[in-house]
């Protein structure tokens, strides 16, 4: 369980987000949706202690993120931002191996190697493991980053727009991988998504933000309704049922 109480972040007197009082459940995939500037990434980076909050407190699995040592937190929670530029040249396996850093501090054991191999294979990167990241396509690279945070073996995995710049096939594959990771490895995955249809199809819970505060929280069935979505996105949205497919929101 991730619980936020009275969390705020002020960028200036008029711009800021919060206060949030919110509990994200353990287990499954939770999607954060909302219009641009709603505070999705800000909230995610604050939970992932990459951004300091101005007031309030956040607890992840009972640990207060402000007072728990960063090194211990790295075994409970991992976060992946959308932009990843490294100055050093790494192979896929070296990158994924960094996921073991909180445990091994850079001294990889045989067990670490086994875990690294497991997640490389899980994301179908086995053939590419000794390629350099700059020799991969955008979709492959994104999979390598996700493999790294999964390799961290944390209960909670936070992903900031992992579908950014991915085409349809790669997006679908990525969401299926995340779904499987949540089920097979019993992870709690919190993911910022822009496409509400992806959220509705692959998430167990949807958390909608708007203007820096929580707008709605519920299952996809509760959120995927004309009036709710129209209000959140301030766009005419119609939810339609298609045979053999989940609910689809149409907003063109």
């Amino acid at each position: 369980m991730i619980s936020l109480s009275h969390v705020t972040k002020r960028y200036s007197s008029t711009v800021g987000i919060g206060p949030f009082d919110l509990q994200l459940p353990k287990g499954g995939v939770t999607a954060l949706i909302g219009p641009n500037g709603a505070g999705k990434s800000t909230m995610l980076t604050m939970i992932g202690r990459l951004l300091d909050m101005d007031s309030g407190s956040i607890e992840v699995a009972g640990y207060d993120i402000a007072s728990t040592k960063s090194r211990d937190l790295a075994k409970i929670l991992s976060i992946l931002r959308q932009e990843n530029h490294f100055i050093t040249r790494l192979t896929v396996r070296q990158l994924v191996g960094f996921g073991r850093f909180p445990y091994s501090q850079g001294r990889l054991t045989v067990d670490d190697e086994r875990i690294i191999s497991r997640y490389i294979d899980f994301l179908d990167l086995g053939e590419l493991e000794s390629r350099y990241l700059d020799q991969l396509s955008g979709g492959q690279r994104q999979r390598a980053y996700v493999a790294m945070v999964l390799c961290q073996d944390t209960e909670y995995v936070l992903l900031d727009e992992p579908l950014n710049n991915l085409d349809i096939a790669h997006s679908v594959a990525m969401m299926r991988h995340l779904r499987r990771a949540a089920e097979e490895f019993d992870r709690t995955i919190i993911v910022v998504l822009h496409d509400i249809n992806f959220a509705a199809t692959y998430a167990d819970y949807i958390c909608a933000l708007k203007n820096g505060v929580l707008a709605r929280f519920g299952t996809p069935g509760e959120i995927m309704r004309d009036d709710v979505l129209t209000e959140i996105f301030e766009t005419d949205i119609t939810v339609i049922e298609t045979p053999g497919r989940p609910l689809v929101a149409v907003y063109f």
Binding site: S70, A74, S78, I79, R81, T88, F98, P102
Partner: peptide, 15 residues
């Protein structure tokens, strides 16, 4: 080695 990944990735790894 971990710091070379940048502030955010390094913090994520507990550095």
């Amino acid at each position: 080695n971990a710091v070379a990944l940048g502030r955010e990735a390094a913090t994520n790894l507990g550095v």
